[in-house]
Amino acid sequence: MSEKESTPSADKGGNAEVWENIVERPEFEALLAAKRRFIVPCCVFFLVYYFALLYFVGWHLDLMKKPVLGKINIAYLFALSQFFMAWGMAWLYMRKAAAFDRAAAELLAKENL
């Protein structure tokens, strides 16, 4: 149970080139690009979907008050759908992240790190 005494940032200096080399490897660039391609659209989507609810609830009350399923109105269904949206987005990310983990592990193995 030995532990590093220092904060991780303490081992600085000297080997900046090693890091630069890894960052410039095509595999690493591909990993970052793949993450960006997934995470940015996902964030945009969930924020738009969430704020759409708040926008409609704030400024389109008549539409939101329309009952669609018995007495249940659009407002409640839209709010409920947010939960399934969040779970769905989390599930998608879990699936995708497994591939990111593999790519990162392969990269480290190649560099003998």
């Binding site: 996902c42 964030c43 969930f46 969430y50 609810l53 409640y76 709010a79 939960f83 969040a86």
Partner: peptide
């Protein structure tokens, strides 16, 4: 119920970012 929705959706930023 708007609070309930926000408190969950918030976790997507925790997860992604």
């Amino acid at each position: 119920f708007m609070y309930s929705v926000g408190f969950l959706v918030a976790y997507l930023s925790v997860l992604y970012v």
